[in-house]
Design a binder for these strands. Structure first.
Lengths: 226, 226
DNA sequence: GTTTAAATGTGATTCATGTCACACATTTAT
DNA sequence: ATAAATGTGTGACATGAATCACATTTAAAC
């Protein structure tokens, strides 16, 4: 039964914890679950969209087309909602989402989502809170982007993956060097060079995509002042 | 009577158009109006805050402390709400707001604001919409920041002021060269140089702070591809 | 009106990082 | 298994823009 499924699955997300059984039941009726393999596009910039996406499991990159090249604006890890800012204003996606590993996503009809917002004020307040947090994060990302050099941004993103995504100091990079460059807003060559340098100085250990953060203090320092 | 005042003033903002008379009356009771002169700080990063600010008239810069220097993240023109992202999560301001011209601001108690969000779902939906729009804007700003060079960002911001803030091709820059540099994420010297250059090429005309945009097409072009 | 301080313009210099070039490795297709 | 395609490391070089240094203008203070 889909109703049950929604109740057990969506409840992992903080805003949805405020939804009542009856509301979850409504959700369940128009909630479609889909599995995406690594590399598959979940939604695409400039395409029409009338869904909010709830990311049940997996990892996703959000990408936006710039004047020169594609850029990764952030990584999103399940459980979370995707595509609120892109869907709720007009019906056109202003960025793309691509799976970085096998990912389960539920498509929620936008009008249904909106009526949930109206029905349950605790739910909508949590959504507001999350949006506010996102905006702040984005502000800080911007500031770092300008005032730190590539070295600092690289360190920041490595730490971020360790702390927020994998919760471990050893993990496999979910991105190619090229994608990593798009994330830290640099070029493939520079990223490659700087990773080697960190490796030589014993701050990290890197073998292909596998990475181990060794000297966290030094990384923090580079992240702040680099 | 304060109640009347709120009804006539707040209604200019789109989200507040959804508030009912009774709700506006509640607002009026705990809404404090203050006038800020040019240069005065409305709220300050790292300080405690328990207010949402409604900007009635005027122009404000939002600034954030970076590892090296202060940076202007955006200009906000009345009428609008200020400080949602900074206040609603925790109680600490994550950025500062400073008046760029004489500005009238209403301080709204946060808990009151929150209860309005709960009471009136149309209101909260409009707020969500505005937050989503902000996040998108911020994404795009980030992308431009990285992929355009200073010339392009300069042009973008000039056009922005003409179109969004002053709605005229001739206006007085509300910022010093230093502040303008903080806005386009560059240095005072570079901004000065590039403005001179645009002036010499007859794309803009500049005399001190007074600026006139002449060749809008060329500016658009620089804004896109510069 | 004179003095002082702040804001601005412009040249010379330096540096981080993007770009080009190519070798090598790894994956995918045939 | 071999070929083709894609991803990666590293050197050489070019360049946008920050920084330093100083002249000059504008605004503020007395």
């Amino acid at each position: 039964m889909q109703t049950v499924k929604c109740a057990t699955c969506l409840l992992k997300s903080k805003p949805a914890q405020n939804l009542e059984d009856s509301e979850l039941a409504i959700l369940g009726q128009s909630c479609v679950e889909t599995v995406f393999e690594k590399g598959e596009t979940i939604f695409k910039q400039d395409a029409l969209s009338s869904n909010i996406i709830y990311l049940q499991t997996g990892l996703v990159k959000l990408m936006i087309k710039g004047p020169q090249r594609m850029q990764i604006i952030k990584l999103k890890k399940a459980p979370c909602f995707l595509g609120l800012p892109t869907t709720i204003g007009d019906k056109i996606n202003h960025y793309s989402a691509v799976a970085l590993e096998q990912t389960t996503a539920c498509f929620i009809d936008l009008s249904l989502f909106k009526s949930l917002l109206r029905m349950n004020s605790d739910f909508s307040c949590e959504i507001i809170l999350e949006l506010c947090k996102n905006e702040l994060d984005q502000f800080n990302r911007c500031v770092k982007l300008v005032q730190n050099q590539v070295f600092g941004r690289l360190a920041t993103n490595l730490l971020n993956m360790a702390n927020e995504i994998y919760r471990a100091n050893e993990f496999d990079l979910p991105l190619s060097r090229n994608e990593f460059a798009d994330l830290v807003c640099s070029s493939r060559e520079t990223v490659s060079r700087l990773l080697s340098e960190l490796n030589q100085e014993g701050i990290i250990e890197i073998r292909g995509k596998h990475i181990r953060l060794i000297d966290l203090n030094k990384l923090e320092d580079i992240s702040r002042n680099g």
